[in-house]
Structures are given as structure tokens and as C-alpha cells.
Write a protein that binds this DNA or RNA. Structure first.
Length: 808
RNA sequence: GCCCUGGUGGUGAAACUGGUAGACACGCUAUCUUGAGGGGGUAGUGCCGUAAGGCGUCGCGGUUCGAAUCCGCGCCAGGGCACCA
């Protein structure tokens, strides 16, 4: 066998072989050791998968193939997240209907994913745009609706008057539409929400027992934004009170005014006649701004006085009530007590409008009367001043003491606030699953009966959004008007579609059950395969996708549909492949298309290269220098395979080599398990180098090299396995076991330090005692030079590690 | 501004619970394969020095027999959040 390695031929052969043999298709009903290896499914863009995507997919695939070698029945499904604004915008831009564009893109993605050698079970491929899929997305909506977890309310959205479309916050750059540059406005529209806030505490607490990347869990914690504080009530002379949330109840004596968000319902009630005009104008002004720039922190404070006053419950003082846009309706109660002495924003506001600033916390060395040049916001150091009976208490004690005092006077209570908002799931767009709701003049809001699902997204020519702020679906009359499911009279459909994140929040549940049309997820399949064993994906989804998925699983669990409430037992975020220091993106023009690399080098070399370039969870900068390294390595292995001995070497192998062999089995196993693919590959290269240096062609060792290489280079592995006379697939060969006794060597090299500096090394038998090692060291000429004529004052010996001699 | 990550040769990177810094690979140098096109083998390759040796993991301090690793204070880069009361 002297033919040279031809990746194109080998890879084509095994792609065909896998398809024909069903190698990648576990028996979902009878699998003995199910392992659900999930990778975040891609959004099928027109450009195809770039190098960064393939890095992520390859890494996930290596893990799946490794688990397969470990004897698991690995289910590695794939699908397409094909609905959404991205697809729709691109379709608008090139003037093609998304219904035409998306299948084309999917075909391309499928080709790429197959070409790179993913162990995908294509029988279970899904697309979120398939009515067979979104039927159940709609069903899910109905489940939430019926459980009272979905509701409708008016909410502000960003609106681009030129593109006549609703924009997501990310699509607004400095207050302007990212596409046309027009200044964006706020519009109030009726929107559907899911009550994710009800689950905030559970979403937070469960994080402690999930095996997730730290960065991801931290990002979720921040997003949930738990704050402990108090809800306090400020009474108004006319009756009624204003509720505020504060994390600093200890500063209440310093509250010199109040601020309401412009949207606060009380604004209209309390404003006095002489201030009405000003307040109305201000509120209108704020509404004309977009949602993003309103929340920019470094803007100059603006606001207006309502003419009304409230009573500070701590000291009874009458304080003015203002309206300002730095207070947001969606957090806390939409109203604050302003403490300019100890909150920078309040300080700026007070300065701008000449409102009194009172110090109620004195930091180290500060006096009660010292004026403030800026807010003193330290909430750890300092003691209360100008605070009546609480004067002198440290902040840490003052906080609970004041809460207790206010509770006893019924003007406040300790509460926990979350930053998380309810999930707005409606989109005034075309390319998504229609929300399955019907509005009837007689019966009100009526859910579409389950038997009528799916509500098919009608194919309409003009899918562009228009000036009305109403989804394009409203223009499709035959679709829009529908008999009411309850009374049969003419009724109207909900014309909004649901958020793409709803599609992707449950796709993992669908994969094992794609062949069932009469249920979203088959109970026994679900019980067998879920929750997902290992999930790998990008950290850009740390909050949205991963949080929404967790929320939906909790709801489905509580409704009795599934047996678990956390969908992803183990989650690992892969690193990002950047190019010239920037994340690959089409707008930056630095996207590297993998196809030509694969055509030139083959998928196996390319996979090896990507996995070798750095730690999988860190990613790295893509440059093609060095891709010939992995290729050379594969050539070397190819040669080993073609030169393999026919007889086992037996006792001829050196102990060092045998030990290296077993160590490699162990190290690669542990490294792959922890996703350290780069060092696993390095270990294998090391073994191969040693075998070549020793002229070793031992059949079992060559066989192991091929097996251990195969997760990274699957086609290559199969081909070599076959050439070595292996039966079936290499992935059924099993990961080679190591003998713990052979992993260590008999002789160890001990570095010898003199006064902490390494001067020499000595070889000693493993587990030598200190005196023996010291003797050996003293015989070493270099050591001798340093030690002779000096007294050894202290010996530090770490067995099998190091010897440190302290000489005087 | 806040919160994460990270900073090691010419390059990508290794380094177990504090114990030989630079594994593995790219590149480079020399040399062999009678010459070539991204071919292969061998040797070398952190820096200074002929050598002995000295200096080296962003900087400055500290803990320790011993620090890339732990602590304090800075600096720089990437990512995320951002008027959240």
C-alpha cells in the first residue's frame, strides 16, 4: 500500500458510506446509553457558514464523536433557525421573497455541514419555517396563553419612519436607523408578552446547580439583575401615595424631591393646572425620541416640575415631584425618591434645577455638614448623619434598621427587584409564525383551537412592513378575516408574528420527535433523550436564547408536559474566531469562507487545523499560516498505517514508549473530555513523533493512533481503520483503555535547584527517598561546583518533582 | 462608568493542587536528498555571552525555599452591560 493520502477521494467515499450504512443514526427508541450532543443551530444566511461557524460545529462534533467512541449512543441533530428579521431584511434588500431565499440557503448550509464531516443524524433535520414545526411553536404560545403566562399590553417600540418598520434596539445606532440613518421614534403598540419575570428567582437560583461555563452563568445573573432594597410609599396631601423602589433606604432622610417617569400614570393626575402645559410638552418630547438614546447615561439631565408635592415618610418634609426621562417606567415602580447627596444622577438633576442637596452619609473623616462636590455613593463605608434617631449608625446597620422602622409605620417594606422584564414576543413583521389568536367583536380574544393549527403564514407578494405600524399580514384580506371559532361571526386574526427567539427556545425538544406530526415531542423519546446532555454554542446567546429556553422548559415542566425544568445539563461556550482582531462579520468584510480551504486541504485537515489553533473555549485569530502542519501530521499517520507491522512487537518496545503510549491514551481522553482539543492533538503528535523516532510500527499502537485521531479527522480515521483491517466503523472501536501502572515511568528526572535556581537535573528511580536523591545530586558536577565548600542548610524535596538545596 | 475575559519566544500556543517556563505546531537557519514548483530527512532555534554564567511570562511592590500561577496597586487589549434608582 504505497498510494498517497488523497483527502478528496477519502472524504467522498466515507460520506457515501456513512449515509448508506446509517452510521450516524442512533436507534432513538432502543439506545442503551443515550447521549444528546447538541450544537446551537445556525441561521441560514445567504453567505453560508464561515470559518467561525465551522470552528464551533467541528468542536461540538469532536465531542460527539468522542462520546460515541466511549460507547454512548450519540444523537447529534441539526436544523435551521430560518425565521426572523435578518432573513427578512436580507430578502427585502435583494428583492427576493424569503420563502424562496431560505430553502436555497438551507441547501447550501446542508452541503457545507455534510462536507465538513459532521456526525449529524439528518433524519431529524428541522427548520423553524416548516409548518410542521411552527405548528408547535404556535401550540406552545397557546399553552402559555391558557396558563395565563401570555398577555397583551401597550408598549413602546422603536419605529423608523423611512423604512416604515419596527426596529429592535440593536438596530438603532445613536438614535438612528442602522439601515437608512433616519432618526427613530417611539411608537406605542399593543404587544404580546410572556411572564418570564415570575420565574426570575427560579432562573437565578437554579444557576447554582447547572454545569455551565462561568462566563455564561455570570452573564445570566447580571441580566436577571437581582437587587435587594425597599419599596416605600410617599403620601400626597391630596390623598394617595407614590410608591418608589430604592436600594438605599438608609438615605431616605436625604430624599429632597421625587421623580416620576414620563409614562407614569400618576403624572396626569397630579400635575397642577399651571404646570400642565410644560409637563405635556415634555412628555411629548420624550416620546418622540427613540428608546436607545433615551437610556444613554451621559446625557444632560432634563425634566419638568409637576407643581405637586409629597411627604417624605422619614422626616415629614414636603418635597416637590418632578417628571424626568432618566427615570424609566419599566424598572421598579417607575418612580424614585431622589437623594442627590448619594446618587450621581439625582445629584446632576438637583444641580441643574437648583434643588436642595443634603448629606445623610458621612464617609471616613467627613463631617455631617461638609458640602458635596459630587454624590457620595459608597454604600459600604460611612455612617448616617442628619438622619434623626439613626445618626451615627454605620450604613450596614442603618439599612435594615430604617426598613424595620418604616415597616412599623406602614410606609414601606423590604423587597427584591429584578432587572429582567417580561419577554415581548410579538413582531410587526412578516417572516415568522403568526400568533394564533383571533379577535371577535362578540367573544373578544379567542385562541385558535388546537385542531386548526398551524395558522399558516400566507405567501404574500408584498411582505414589506408599511407606515401603519401593523404587520404586513393585515393586508391579506382572505387571511385576515376568519370566522370566530366560538360564535362563527366574522372575526380578525392577530397579524403579528412571534419572535425568532420563541422558535429557538424549544427546538432541542423537537429533534428527537421530528417524525411525529400529532405531537410536539413524544413522551417516551423525551424521557429517554432529555434534558440535553451537552450543549455547545456561542456566548452571544448567553442571555437571550439560553434564558428563554430555560424559562419555557420551566413552564412546560409546571404544566406537566416534560419531566425536567432545566433543558441543558451542561453548557459550554465556544471561543470566537476573529480575523485581524475583529469578529468575523460581513459588514467588516473579514469573513473567511471555508469552502476553498476544504477543497484544497480536505475537511479533516481543516478540522484538525481549527481544533489545534487554540483552546476551543477561547477561539483565536484566523490566519492560514500553519495549516500545512496538521496536513503533514496526517501524512505521517498515513505512512505509519501503510508500514504497519504484521506482528505485535511484544517485549521489544522500550518502557519509555509504552509509558508514553498509555499516557497518551489517558491524556487525550481527559483533554477531549474537558474540550482542550489543542493539547489532545499535541499529545498525539508527540506519540507519533516518538514512534517514528523509534521505528515503531507496532500494530496495536498504530491502531490506537487511528482511533484517537478519528474524532478530529473522521473520514481519515475510517479509511485508516479499514486499511488496518478493522471491521465496521472506527467509531465503534471504543476508546483505548490505559493501564494506570504503565502511565508512570520507572525513572524520573528531578530538577536540582541551588537556592531556588535550577542548576541541574538528575535521573532517579521513581518514588526515591530524599537522602538518595541528595546523594545523586551531590555527584552531579554542576551541583558539586555550587555546593562544595558550602554548608547545606536546608533541603526541600518534593518526591518525583524537585530538589532544592539551600546553601550558605 | 460598571462587569467579565485575557496579556508568556519571530507566530499560534503549553505549563498538574505554587515545583525544570516555552510541550506541540508554524516560521526561520544550516545540511542532506544531483535542480525546481508550499516535497521529504537530519540538526538547531527565548534573549545576551566563545564559555562559565546572567536575564527572561505587561509594569511596580509583596507572600514563599520556590511565583506565569497567590495578594495589592497600576497599564494595555478583547467582549458584555449601561440614566436599573
Amino acid at each position: 500500500m504505497t498510494d498517497s493520502y488523497d483527502p478528496t477521494a477519502v472524504e467522498a467515499k466515507w460520506r457515501a458510506r456513512w449515509a448508506e450504512r446509517g452510521t450516524n443514526q442512533p436507534d432513538l427508541d432502543r439506545a442503551a446509553k443515550p447521549f444528546y450532543n447538541l450544537m446551537m443551530f445556525p441561521y441560514p444566511s445567504a453567505e453560508g457558514l464561515h470559518v467561525g461557524n465551522l470552528f464551533a460545529f467541528s468542536g461540538s462534533d469532536v465531542f460527539g464523536r468522542f462520546k460515541r467512541l466511549k460507547g454512548y449512543d450519540v444523537f447529534e441533530p441539526i436544523g435551521f433557525d430560518a425565521f426572523g428579521i435578518h432573513s427578512e431584511n436580507y430578502a427585502i434588500k435583494i428583492g427576493t421573497h424569503p420563502g424562496e431565499l431560505i430553502p436555497r440557503n438551507i441547501t447550501n448550509f446542508r452541503r457545507q455541514l455534510e462536507r465538513v464531516g459532521g456526525m449529524f443524524d439528518w433524519r431529524h433535520e428541522l427548520s423553524t419555517t416548516d409548518p410542521k414545526y411552527y405548528k408547535w411553536t404556535q401550540w406552545l404560545f397557546l399553552q402559555l396563553y391558557q396558563a395565563g403566562k401570555a398577555y397583551k399590553k401597550k408598549a413602546a417600540v422603536n419605529w423608523c419612519p423611512f423604512d416604515k418598520t419596527v426596529l429592535a434596539n440593536e438596530q438603532v445606532i445613536n438614535g438612528a436607523c442602522e439601515r437608512c440613518g433616519t432618526m427613530v421614534e417611539q411608537r406605542l403598540l399593543e404587544q404580546w408578552f410572556f411572564r418570564i419575570t415570575e420565574y426570575a428567582e427560579r432562573l437565578l437560583n437554579n444557576l447554582d446547580r447547572l454545569d455551565w461555563s462561568d462566563t455564561t452563568a455570570t452573564a445570566q445573573r447580571n441580566w436577571l439583575g437581582r437587587s435587594e432594597g425597599a419599596e416605600l410609599s410617599f403620601e400626597m396631601p391630596a390623598g394617595g401615595g407614590i410608591k418608589v423602589f430604592t436600594t438605599r433606604p438608609d438615605t431616605i432622610f436625604g430624599a429632597t424631591f421625587m421623580v416620576l417617569a414620563p409614562e407614569h400614570p400618576l403624572v396626569r393626575q397630579i400635575v397642577t393646572a399651571e404646570h400642565r402645559l410644560d409637563v405635556d410638552r415634555y412628555v411629548r418630547d420624550v416620546k418622540s425620541k427613540d428608546l436607545v438614546s433615551r437610556k444613554v447615561g451621559d446625557r444632560e439631565k432634563s425634566g419638568v416640575f409637576t407643581g405637586a408635592y409629597a411627604r417624605n415618610p422619614a422626616n415629614g418634609e414636603s418635597i416637590p415631584i418632578w417628571v424626568a426621562d432618566y427615570v424609566l417606567m419599566e424598572y421598579g415602580t417607575g418612580a424614585i425618591m431622589a437623594v442627590p447627596g448619594h446618587d450621581q444622577r439625582d445629584f446632576e438633576f438637583a444641580t441643574r434645577f437648583s434643588l436642595p442637596i443634603v448629606r445623610v452619609i458621612a464617609g471616613d473623616g467627613a463631617e455631617a455638614g461638609t458640602p458635596l462636590a459630587e454624590a457620595y455613593t459608597d454604600n459600604v463605608h460611612g455612617r448616617l448623619v442628619n438622619s434623626g434617631q439613626f445618626d451615627g449608625q454605620p450604613v450596614a446597620q442603618g439599612k435594615p434598621a430604617i426598613i424595620r422602622w418604616l415597616e412599623s409605620r406602614k410606609s414601606g417594606k423590604g423587597v427584591v427587584q429584578y432587572r429582567l422584564h417580561d419577554w415581548c414576543i410579538s413582531r410587526q413583521r412578516y417572516w415568522g409564525p403568526p400568533i394564533p389568536i383571533i379577535y371577535c367583536d362578540a367573544c373578544g380574544t379567542v385562541p385558535v383551537p388546537e385542531k386548526d393549527l398551524p395558522v399558516i403564514l400566507p405567501p404574500i407578494e408584498d411582505f414589506r412592513p408599511d407606515d401603519s405600524g401593523i404587520s404586513p399580514l393585515a393586508r391579506h384580506e382572505e387571511w385576515y378575516y376568519v370566522p370566530c371559532p366560538q360564535c362563527g361571526k366574522r372575526a380578525r386574526r392577530e397579524t403579528d408574528v412571534s419572535d425568532t427567539f420563541l422558535d429557538s427556545a424549544w427546538y432541542y425538544l423537537r429533534y428527537p420527535s421530528t417524525e411525529f406530526d400529532d405531537r410536539p415531542f413524544d413522551p417516551s423519546r423525551t424521557r429517554k433523550w432529555l434534558p440535553v446532555t451537552t450543549y455547545i454554542g456561542g456566548n452571544e446567546h448567553a442571555v437571550l436564547h439560553l434564558l428563554y429556553s430555560r424559562f419555557l422548559a420551566m413552564v412546560l415542566h409546571d404544566l406537566g408536559h416534560i419531566h425536567f425544568e432545566e433543558p441543558f445539563t451542561k453548557f459550554r461556550a465556544h471561543g470566537l474566531i476573529v480575523k485581524d482582531g475583529a469578529k468575523m462579520s460581513k459588514s467588516k468584510g473579514n469573513v473567511v469562507v471555508p469552502d476553498e480551504y476544504i477543497a484544497q486541504w480536505g475537511a479533516d485537515t481543516f478540522r484538525m487545523y481549527l481544533m489545534f489553533l487554540g483552546p476551543f473555549q477561547e477561539g483565536g485569530d484566523f490566519r492560514d499560516a500553519g495549516i500545512n502542519g496538521p496536513r503533514r501530521f496526517l501524512d505521517k499517520v498515513w505512512q505509519l498505517v501503510s508500514e504497519v507491522s504484521t506482528e505485535p512487537a511484544g517485549g521489544e518496545l522500550t518502557k519509555t514508549l509504552v509509558s508514553k503510549w498509555h499516557r497518551t491514551r489517558m491524556k487525550m481522553h481527559d483533554d477531549i473530555e474537558s474540550l482542550h482539543y489543542n493539547t489532545a492533538i499535541a499529545a498525539l503528535m508527540d506519540l507519533v513523533n516518538q514512534m517514528r523516532e523509534n521505528g515503531c510500527r507496532e500494530p496495536e499502537m498504530v491502531r490506537d493512533v487511528v482511533v484517537m485521531l478519528s474524532p478530529f479527522a473522521p473520514h481519515f480515521g475510517e479509511e485508516c481503520w479499514e486499511r488496518l483491517g478493522g471491521k465496521g466503523s472506527v467509531f465503534d472501536a471504543g476508546w483505548p483503555l490505559w493501564d494506570p501502572g504503565l502511565v508512570v515511568e520507572d525513572q524520573v528526572e528531578i530538577p536540582v535547584q541551588i537556592n531556588g535556581k535550577t542548576r541541574s537535573k538528575v535521573m532517579v528511580p521513581r518514588d526515591s527517598e530524599e537522602p538518595a536523591v541528595v546523594e545523586a545530586a551531590k555527584r552531579d558536577p554542576t551541583v558539586k561546583r555550587f555546593v562544595d565548600g558550602h554548608e547545606i542548610r536546608k533541603v526541600i524535596y518534593v518526591p518525583n518533582r524537585l530538589l532544592n538545596l539551600l546553601v550558605g
